[in-house]
């Protein structure tokens, strides 16, 4: 059973992980040699007045834990600090871009789950030639990193086909989705292949399991066996892997957005890292780590609800 104790422990683990991660990300400011104020100015060498201003803005003269508390409570209240390099509030930099990146992640996640699970189930249930075809497709997909897929797409669709825009974010919902199609496909290729392999082996394992053989020998219709005994049992591992994959997509947006000139937080993260704009990098890194941890926890809890044996093994461990 999905006990409150299990959910509670997971939530506690989530909060502890996020707190430690936030200390690490904030504390990274003090890892580098030199003056944190100069670092926050983004590698340029500002005059003493500007440095003093930065020290005051970022509370750099306070003790570490007080600075940290100021930063964290700001984050939680939507005050994300100020970018010295862009001369703008981080909230304003992120506001429009978060939506674009979320759309990209949701788009890619949909492709991964629908096509990945679909191909994997098809290969396991049909077998034969379809299975071989899926093996070939997934082998190629597994070997296609986002940035290589991206340049192949840019080449194919810019000079040869011209079906999809290869640059920019677009405006309006339909146009934006249209612009996000190639980035989403490039981002999801490897993971579609991965999820479909996991799905195939999970479904195959269930097909050969004793209870399915028993159900078949009792003459139950195949359709109902597949639905109630095979897919239901294969769902937990497939969900876990898909969830892990989707959780990691936020970090992957950096490459996909950069490659197609999409104006999202991933591209902003790379831009700010290159310009050494630490204030923005810290906020986006925290956001991506948080998204990863939260999605993982949600998936853990859903998997446990689907397969109560997981709760038992988690309690044992």
């Amino acid at each position: 059973m999905l006990t409150p104790a299990f959910v509670g422990r997971r939530l506690l683990g989530l909060v502890v992980t996020l707190l430690v991660a936030s200390v690490v990300i904030f504390g990274s400011l003090y890892l580098s040699p030199g003056d944190p104020a100069a670092l926050l100015a983004g590698g340029s060498t500002p005059n003493p007045e500007a440095l003093a201003q930065i020290r005051a803005d970022f509370h750099l003269n306070d003790p570490f834990w007080s600075q940290y508390w100021h930063w964290l409570s700001g984050l939680l209240q939507g005050d994300l600090g100020r970018s010295v390099v862009f001369r703008s509030d981080v909230v304003d930099l992120l506001a429009s871009r978060v939506v674009t990146s979320l759309m990209l992640v949701v788009y890619a996640a949909t492709l991964i789950i629908v096509i990945g699970v679909g191909l994997g189930s098809l290969a396991a249930l049909r077998g034969g030639r379809i299975s071989t075809a899926v093996t070939v497709v997934t082998t190629i997909g597994m070997a296609a990193p986002t940035f290589v897929a991206a340049i192949v797409f840019v080449w194919l669709f810019s000079t040869q086909l011209g079906w999809f825009p290869i640059y920019g974010s677009g405006s309006g919902l339909v146009d934006r989705l249209w612009h996000l199609t190639l980035p989403a496909v490039a981002l999801s290729l490897t993971w579609i292949a991965y999820v479909s392999r996991i799905t195939r082996s999970a479904v195959s394992a269930e097909l050969e399991s004793e209870h399915v053989v028993t159900a078949t020998s009792r003459g139950l219709p195949r359709r109902s066996i597949v639905r109630h005994h095979v897919m239901r049992n294969a769902a937990a591992p497939v969900l876990t892997i898909s969830g892990l994959t989707v959780a990691g997509l936020f970090a992957g947006t950096a490459v996909a957005e950069q490659a197609f000139g999409v104006n999202g937080i991933g591209a902003l993260l790379i831009d700010c890292a290159a310009k050494q704009d630490l204030a923005v990098v810290q906020v986006i890194a925290m956001f991506m780590v948080a998204a990863f941890v939260v999605i993982n926890t949600v998936v853990d809890v859903i998997s446990a609800a689907l397969d109560p044996r997981l709760v038992a093994s988690a309690v044992d461990a």
């Binding site: 990300i25 890892l31 990691g248 490459v255 890292a273 290159a274 050494q276 704009d277 630490l278 890194a285």
Partner: peptide, 13 residues
């Protein structure tokens, strides 16, 4: 911490 995120933070520093 995904590897890419750690690398990006390291580059920023």
């Amino acid at each position: 911490f995904p590897g890419l995120i750690l690398a990006v933070v390291a580059v920023a520093l």
